[in-house]
Write a protein that binds this DNA or RNA. Structure first.
Length: 887
DNA sequence: CCTCTGCTTAGAGGA
């Protein structure tokens, strides 16, 4: 039986005499929860024997403990538990450790930490390794070798070019590696029963491990290593990696007692030079002892992460003099004043910088845990809960699967009526046969998401369910951004970030840039003149994007290389579009094919191609446009700019902003901290943007754009008064006085209640989950009324706080319906806001008034608030809103 | 990708 629960008391390790000699043990007290032992409000004792005392030593009360196959016995009338020979002891099983992290931890705990902190930089062995892995996968899928090499090397063109490699030499090297793979595949008995599978995505709720095995052969893990190993045995950490996959497979009931490591650089030539068995493939048996070891190592990581501590290297007996990372390790230890086995070099950072590092390290790790929580939902939530959570499409009707080029698969299913989810076309997600953890699951890309769902994947899954696949990438990139800012950033930059020096300005700008808007003109001048930083505060409709484009052009005229960035692809594309409208086209857009908007794809940097050519395309671009997340990528981290201009900066976490500004000498942040704040899962320091912090700290380095071109006077009044101290004004009489009649709509054709440009309608009805069906009906009627009066449906938008209500309304109308978060940045002539607030205003959606500011400022000529008047009136802010709407 | 060690054993068991 599995015993699981919260640790209440952790006993010391001690030695006892048994009939088999001296043995060690440690006793734990656990409050059972979530395992097979059901003892609410009671505690039980568990004895951990032998090597599991190692895990006991790491344990702290408050941690979650799992003992699998625990033995139950009676002692003095008390039921107690102990580890058996089959047992594993897992600390904090909900913390999912990546297999490659276990691998680096086994090499040296400090290396695990350094990888996490500074990321893996762009280097040749890693790029080549990726290419060889891809070719390996292609070969397993039966693809022609030369075709695969040509395509995969070409795909890595940009990276290879940035590293100064020539395609032909890389192809040759990959060919040599592939020869070892082919030779091994050909030798002996490769039959249908071999049951090859490539790239197997594995998640283990029991052991708290996740990862992707390179391949499975007859159910046994195969790991590909693109280096050479002329010793008889596989490298220990390689064995650990393969054993970790075997462990996860065992949980699925398909135990693997053997694993294979394929060292593709063990070529025929080298084999001849040495005697003995130097075939590229090294098989080894995976015993319980090795699996225990893997779990113990995983526990070391989980225990360290539990209290956000930092490994020193003393946790293992690594010998630092052999380590290639010794210098980096010593520098990081020295600068951050961390204890380290390798020692320290350099003087520690000032205390406030170290405090900043600790604070954000913790916040980012908390965010990582929240990501793990999303994984946990893959197996803990019932299908219905999962569907309500809209992070999955479940109960799909499987249609078919067919093989497409490259041995890959296209999977089809039909989606039941009305199923909604966060999933979007182009997303990477987890396709499964209905059970994403225990069943057949594979990462896939969504191609079509209509009534029929079409995805492509490496393996032929019977598509019955799609889940959001949680990714730690953004979390990891935040951490490397903080690392880069503190350890690689200039002192000048840090003086400003840490409030030690006010941003300075030099008179560079001479001309007037914008002649009809004084604030915009000041914003451009401030940005051009900034030696360190400039902040542009742009409330809704104030021409932020135009100002950004004008600023970029001014900087280019001054001979600067510019990075144009924002949190979302949409904002990046909008800025690029504005730049193009102003006649500037020499822009490189870095991003994925799915991320970049269609009409900007011609500017997109193609990463595949001739290396030199690809590298030049990026290196020579005067303007590079990319999301802040892309700025944290390996390739972008190698780029440098004079100025980074970041839009939507108020929606970015500090580390997210750092990812962009780290790449440039100076920066300009554009945003509005009265609109949506950064979206983070955990509650911590990440919720406040760097933009907001700097605007508060250096008001003299900021300009507020105060003329808005979007809303009529009547519509903007509430927002201006509540959020901008009344400073926001219409840009002119025409903007202020605009009405639906300007569109040729006869206002007299509208029902009485919609005649005023700001109207309030109480539809009654009640809240059902996150919907109010009666309210949805009413909203649809109101939309029809506008359309009947002659408003083009394309000019009407509906905003609702919850995605469920969005879906409810979408069923009833064809106009654009979306959540506030997705509406930020756009506008419509007519906006209807559905509050779904019947009965009360509970929930974070209503607490953050900035969200309402966004919703109310999307409308140009008419705005209708639809909601429960009594509920809204119960809060002073919403009461003021009602007064304004019902005036 | 490069490197030193870490696992290799069945099997219960103390108070």
């Amino acid at each position: 039986m599995n015993l699981r629960g919260r640790l209440v008391e952790v006993g010391e390790e001690r030695e006892v005499e048994t009939q088999y000699g001296t043995r060690s043990l440690a006793e734990m007290t656990v409050r059972p929860e979530g395992g097979d032992v059901d003892a609410p409000d009671a505690t039980v004792r568990v004895t951990l024997w032998g090597k599991w005392t190692h895990t006991a030593d790491l344990a702290e009360s408050g941690m979650d403990l799992l003992v699998t196959d625990a033995e139950e016995s009676e002692y003095r009338g008390e039921t107690t538990y102990a580890t058996s020979k089959e047992s594993y002891v897992v600390l904090e099983p909900d913390f999912l450790v990546d297999v490659t992290d276990v691998r680096s931890w086994v090499q040296c705990p400090r290396m695990y930490y350094l990888n996490k902190l500074s990321g893996i930089p762009l280097n040749y062995p890693v790029v080549k390794g990726t290419v060889v892995h891809e070719v390996f996968g292609d070969l397993l899928r039966g693809r022609d070798l030369e075709d695969s090499i040509d395509e995969r090397v070409a795909e890595a063109g940009l990276q290879l070019g940035l590293l100064g490699y020539d395609a032909e030499e890389v192809r040759d090297e990959v060919r040599r590696n592939a020869a070892a793979i082919e030779g091994w595949l050909a030798q002996g008995t490769l039959t249908e029963e071999d049951g090859w599978r490539s790239e197997y995505t594995l998640i283990s709720p029991t052991f708290g491990i996740k990862g992707r095995a390179d391949a499975l052969r007859r159910g046994m893990p195969v790991e590909l290593k693109t280096g050479k190993n002329l010793k008889r045995d596989p490298r220990f950490q390689d064995k650990i990696q393969a054993a970790a996959y075997a462990l996860v497979l065992a949980e699925r009931g398909v135990p693997a007692d053997t694993a294979t490591l394929l060292y593709t650089k063990n070529t025929a030539l080298e084999r001849n030079e040495e005697s003995g068995d130097l075939s590229p493939a090294k098989e080894f048996s995976v015993g319980k002892g090795l699996l225990d070891f893997v779990v113990r190592k995983r526990n070391e990581i989980a225990a360290m992460e539990f209290d956000f501590s930092v490994p020193t290297g003393f946790e293992a007996d690594a010998k630092c003099e052999y380590c290639f990372e010794q210098d980096t390790c010593m520098v990081v230890s020295g600068r951050l004043d961390q204890e380290s086995k390798a020692g320290q070099i350099g003087t520690p950072l000032p205390e406030d910088e170290r405090e900043y590092f600790d604070r954000f390290y913790r916040a980012i790790e908390e965010e990582r845990r929240e990501t793990h929580e999303e994984y946990r939902k893959l197996w803990e939530q019932s299908a219905e809960e999962r569907a309500d959570d809209d992070r999955a499409l479940i109960d799909l009707d499987y249609v078919d699967r067919r093989e497409i080029e490259g041995g890959r698969w296209e999977l089809r299913a039909r989606r039941p009526d009305g199923a909604v989810s966060k999933l979007r076309e182009g997303d990477i997600c987890l396709a499964s046969d209905g059970d994403p953890v225990g069943g057949h699951a594979e990462l896939c890309r969504i191609r079509e998401l209509g009534d029929e769902v079409v995805v492509t994947a490496d393996e032929p899954v019977e598509l019955r369910r799609l889940d959001v696949y949680p990714s730690e990438i953004s979390v990891s990139r935040m951490l490397t951004a903080v690392h880069d800012a503190l350890l690689k950033g200039s002192e000048d930059r840090k003086d400003v970030l840490f409030g030690r020096r006010d941003p300075e300005f030099s008179a560079r700008s001479a001309e007037a840039y914008v002649d009809n808007n004084e604030a915009q003109n000041r914003a451009v001048r401030l940005s051009v003149d900034a030696d360190d930083a400039a902040l542009v505060h742009g409330p809704p409709g104030t021409g932020k994007t135009y100002t950004i484009a004008r600023t970029v052009r001014a900087l280019l005229d001054d001979g600067q290389r510019v990075l144009l960035s924002a949190f979302t692809n949409r904002a990046v594309d909008n800025a690029v579009e504005a730049l193009r409208e102003q006649g500037f086209e020499d822009i490189v857009r870095v991003g994925t094919e799915n991320g970049v908007r269609e009409d900007m794809l011609d500017l997109r940097l193609k990463t595949a191609g001739e290396p030199n050519d690809r590298a030049a395309a990026l290196n020579d671009a005067p303007v590079v446009a990319a999301t802040t997340s892309s700025c944290g990528s390996r390739m972008m981290r190698e780029q440098s700019f004079d100025v980074a201009l970041v839009d939507e900066a108020s929606q970015l976490t500090e580390p997210g902003t750092l990812a962009a500004i780290n790449l440039a000498d100076r920066f300009v942040l554009v945003g509005d901290h009265q609109q949506l704040p950064p979206v983070v899962r955990a509650e911590n320091d990440l919720q406040k943007s760097l933009f907001e912090r700097l605007v508060d700290r250096y008001p003299e380095a900021s300009v507020m754009l105060d003329r808005q071109y979007r809303m009529s006077q009547r519509i903007q009044a509430f927002s201006s008064a509540e959020f901008y101290d009344g400073a926001l004004r219409p840009a002119g009489g025409e903007v202020a006085a605009q009405r639906l009649s300007d569109l040729g709509v006869a206002e007299s054709a509208l029902p009485e209640e919609l005649r005023d440009p700001v109207a309030f309608v109480d539809p009654g009805g009640s809240r059902v989950g996150n919907t109010n069906p009666a309210e949805a009906d009413r909203v649809a009627e109101l939309v029809d009324a506008y359309a009947a009066a002659g408003v083009d449906p394309d000019d009407i938008g509906v905003i609702a706080p919850f995605r469920a209500q969005v879906a409810e309304i979408s069923k009833r109308t064809d106009v654009t319906v979306d959540t506030v978060d997705r509406f930020q940045g756009s506008s419509k002539e007519v906006i209807l806001v559905s509050f779904v607030a019947a009965g009360g205003l509970d929930g974070p959606i209503f607490e953050d008034h900035r969200r309402i500011n966004v919703a109310l400022t999307r409308a140009k000529k008419a705005l209708v608030l639809v909601g429960d008047a009594d509920a809204l009136a119960s809060d002073p802010f919403y009461a003021r809103m009602l007064d304004w709407a019902r005036r």
